[in-house]
Simulated assay, not measured.
Amino acid sequence: MSDVERLLKQAAMQIGAGGSAGFVEVCIMHPLDLVKTRFQLQSSSSALKSSDPHYYNGIVDCMKKMYKYEGLTSFWKGILPPILAETPKRAVKFATFEQYKRFFMFGSSTPTPLTFSLAGLGAGITEAILVNPFEVVKVTLQSNKSLATQVPSTWSVTRQIVRENGLGSKGLNKGLTATMARNGIFNMVYFGFYHSVKGYIPEYEDPLLEFSRKIAIGFTSGVLGSCVNIPFDVAKSRVQGPQPSPGIVKYNSTVGTINLVYREEGFRALYKGLLPKVLRLGPGGAIMLVVYDYVYNFLENKFQDKTQ
């Protein structure tokens, strides 16, 4: 097999495994992503805390109120954009991660923790550029507190955003810098920790123990990445979500939004939605990496069978 054929085979396996991992993860964990976004859009300084039926005091309170006022299907509001984006997003992330790894070897014969971290950073920034328009539509849908049956369709929301604000930094690419910072930092920690630690903890011959090993490392990777990048996630939600006063842009730049939230609402506000984010990306991170590994190995075996 030529080098070109080998590279194409590896790319196909990375795309297939990455797309499968992303699809499974988003279908299972989307409700927690929605709860996280609701908390991040909610201002701590609101004077309507007691009277607003949509003010949330915790994850359970949020889910109860969403079920009461918006219906069961509200937990999957805005799921179509990430489903449409997940296959190419995860495919791009895992495929570019492998390519960035080669670039950041710095003369070493084997990848180092720095290699994994920088490759993760590059992969996260790359995927952010691809998925940011989907994120803008998703956050717009998730911020809508009407009954799920009354929420506009994904396509009508997309058309409205393009019609009113275009494709640029005020429209479908709003909050791009925040998305790049969020995804880049998360994946730097996520991939850096997972691949570095996985190399130090020996594999088990028992399939169940090996599965548990990967789940534990993936879970820890997702939790650490979530804790590190949460301020940028809050900024992204504020920039991409509805502004407090219609017609007045309060949240604009990434750093400016972080500073504004800190001044008005305090340091803890920068960690809004952390618990649902951790509950989503801890298990979600484990699911994604484990599904990726198993699908990649399955496809690799299939390719080998065909070439024999």
Rank of each mutant, 00 (worst) to 15 (best):
Q142I: 11
I129C: 04
V137E: 04
R163D: 07
L141Y: 01
I185D: 04
M188K: 08
D206W: 08
F134H: 00
I201F: 13
E164K: 13
T179Q: 13
W155S: 03
Q160G: 10
A128N: 02
S143R: 05
L167N: 06
V131H: 02
V162P: 00
K145C: 06
Q160F: 07
S153E: 03
Y190R: 02
P207H: 12
N173H: 05
F193Q: 12
G192M: 02
R163G: 04
D206E: 09
L147K: 10
T149H: 13
P207N: 08
R159W: 05
F186Q: 15
Y190C: 06
V131L: 07
S153D: 02
Y190L: 08
Y204W: 12
A178K: 03
T149M: 06
G168T: 11
A181L: 15
P207K: 14
Y194C: 03
T158H: 03
G124Y: 00
Y190I: 09
N165Q: 09
K145N: 06
L147Y: 02
K174M: 11
N132G: 02
F191R: 03
K145F: 10
N173V: 06
E203H: 14
P133Y: 04
F134V: 03
Q150D: 11
T149S: 15
T149Y: 03
E164N: 12
L176Q: 09
I125S: 00
Q150K: 14
G171A: 10
V189D: 00
K198G: 10
V139T: 04
I185K: 03
L130W: 04
T149N: 03
I185Q: 04
T179G: 14
G199M: 09
S169W: 10
I201V: 15
L141K: 05
T149D: 04
F191Q: 08
I129A: 11
T126N: 01
F193E: 02
V136C: 04
G199V: 13
G166D: 11
G184Y: 05
G124C: 12
L130A: 08
G168D: 08
V136G: 04
L141T: 07
G124H: 03
E205R: 15
I125C: 14
R163A: 14
P133L: 10
Y200D: 00
A148L: 04
L147E: 07
V189H: 00
